[in-house]
Write a protein that binds this DNA or RNA. Structure first.
Lengths: 340, 340
DNA sequence: TACAAACACGAAAACGTTTGCGCAAATTAT
DNA sequence: ATAATTTGCGCAAACGTTTTCGTGTTTGTA
């Protein structure tokens, strides 16, 4: 790479001081029209642009916000990032994305690197491994320094900072209510292992709805899927019982799509024989046959919200108490539950 | 945010010079065991971490690579980013992601900001608007400065830099050959408008296969879809002709899924009445009914490749001539073309 | 006792920028 | 002609770090 043109070089060119050049380029009245003109022409010609690092160091401000997500090849997370980027750009910030890959160690190292002065604030969705360990010391460290931090979706209540979450309980509650309204009696739940927060919250919403509708909770209808095993085989078991369910609520899109596929292979009609709802994060639900009714998560809105909280925190326009914003998902009804 | 602890503050604390502190923290033998010990203990206690900006400024190296993509809520692009991030992390680089949102102006401003010293090199996939304008001056500017740059997927041959592309012609060629092999005679092509490079390349591969198989090109079978209009309505026309096709090659997943849906609504059997292939970038193809045969694009591999070229360029371990790496897609055969 | 060597540390430059202040020279006012 | 003001520019500090080169003190050796 060619050496960049700097104030110093321009100054040397004209035999003036660096400050004269700096002021000239900023159209300062301190510098004569003549000097200003020739310096600006020269700078233009050589495409002078102030070095950002120097500016950031001097201003003690990077105008960059760091984002750490467990993965990026994931419709929900990329949608959130999109929202973050949108809002950040509007406010003059750039976005630096890092991936934890669900690994505790990578999360720690990413946080350590980013808080070294590279960014003005941090947005994090906690890695699965960290959630399992329940080890949040790396967060305490930056919170002690009052480093601006916002958690979203995968959060932990013990970490004192701003947070944005989806109302998972409410979403599952709505979905289950809908299934009951259309006449479902035996609603199976396809959820994750317990340590996945969203899975357990959605289970709560499911149970809350059953309770409200005076339906007893049948533990044999609750399936905890392990993402490391074969999904297809695990979900098959739902149908291989004497008294199979007449509805399924799946905590994500993939589980729902696979359940749909197996149901059809078993000769079941959807939604007549079995109704299916998933939590969606992508486009799959729209293109299955029939399309899947789903709980929509508003990732873009979430991203904007997260970015807004963070930037307010950075710019000290936020209230001193930490905020917890809850975003309500909505139920998108398609033909997997209502065919009309 | 609390003011960060710096070398200067530590120095003041012990009444020594900044350089002494710096050396002590680096375990320099120049500093006595005693001084070293107390300084390190103090620094540890206050979680001293060198300020990255200062280091970057001094070393004239940021170890950050900038990535500009048209969008991020897109399976292909996020997969490429994932590959980039993976390789970059291995090599000690961080990734700064910016979105052009298909806008020329945003692409220009992103590039301008990132090349101000914030990153050591740039990876770009060109925005649609830029492709339409054919205005590449912003690239010339940074190429004149020998700024490390790699283009991928959405490239332009006039820009002199390293490039990584998918063999779109080959992919479409393979797919069309496959359709012909299974007996298709009238193969429709669902492509994009001409200025979208990938669309026109895939069209070339389609025509190349027809030629090789001595099938004349029927222009009435080629549909140029406009993404700004209603996709469903446009694709419907494929089926609303006297002599409809017996196969469809779609240049992306969505077109293919919609075509599949309409075909089924029209009472056609797949693949018996009509076979369908799409270029895939996401998970949709896997969950349609029947699952779609598709051309897989290896985004992750592409990302690693792109990052490798860039980092070699940055670290001057690259050959001086620019390279153009072509990644061959493969055909994933599913039941939308072969049902056995 | 004198001199060399080892030891322990500091000064200063460099990365590139901005900005308050000072200081001549030129211009205006008295 | 002298004083006051304006004009045009440079100095230097500051952001935080690393590193080369000096320098003074202590220790070791002849």
């Amino acid at each position: 790479m060619k050496p960049r043109i700097t104030l110093k070089k321009i100054a040397r060119e004209f035999g003036v001081s660096i400050s004269t050049v700096s002021k000239a380029l900023k159209d300062s009245h301190e510098i004569s029209e003549e000097t200003r003109g020739k310096i600006k022409a020269f700078a233009d010609y050589y495409h002078y642009k102030p070095n950002n690092l120097a500016l950031q160091l001097r201003n003690q401000k990077t105008s960059v916000i760091g984002v750490i997500v467990p993965e990026i090849v994931h419709h929900f997370f990329s949608t959130v990032i999109n929202g973050i980027e949108k809002y950040a750009t509007e406010k003059g910030y750039n976005v630096m994305v890092c991936l934890s890959n669900e690994s505790y160690e990578k999360e720690v190292s990413n946080m350590s690197v980013l808080t070294n002065g590279s960014v003005d604030g941090l947005i994090v969705s906690i890695a699965r491994e960290t959630q399992q360990n329940q080890n949040f010391k790396h967060f305490e460290a930056i919170i002690n320094d009052d480093f601006p931090l916002v958690l979203f979706d995968r959060i932990n209540d013990d970490i004192e900072c701003d947070k944005v979450i989806i109302d998972d309980i409410g979403g599952a509650f709505k979905a289950t209510n809908h299934l009951i309204e259309i006449g479902s009696k035996r609603i199976a739940l396809l959820t994750t292992q317990d340590f996945i927060t969203v899975g357990s919250l959605r289970k709560k919403g499911y149970i809350k709805s059953l309770n409200k509708n005076k339906i007893s909770v049948d533990e044999s209808l609750i399936y905890k899927i392990d993402d490391n095993l074969d999904l297809y085989e695990q979900i098959k078991k739902v149908f291989a019982v004497k008294n199979p369910p007449d509805a399924i609520l799946a905590v994500n899109e993939i589980y729902a799509a696979i359940a749909l596929k197996i149901a059809k292979e078993s000769g079941l009609k959807i939604p007549e024989d079995i109704a299916i709802i998933g939590f969606t994060s992508g486009l799959i639900s729209e293109y299955t046959d029939p399309p899947l009714t789903c709980v929509e998560q508003h990732g873009f809105l979430m991203g904007k919200q997260v970015a807004e909280l963070l930037i307010n925190r950075i710019e000290n326009t936020a209230p001193s108490e930490f905020q917890k914003v809850v975003i309500s998902p909505n139920l998108k009804i398609r033909k997997s539950t209502l065919d009309n």
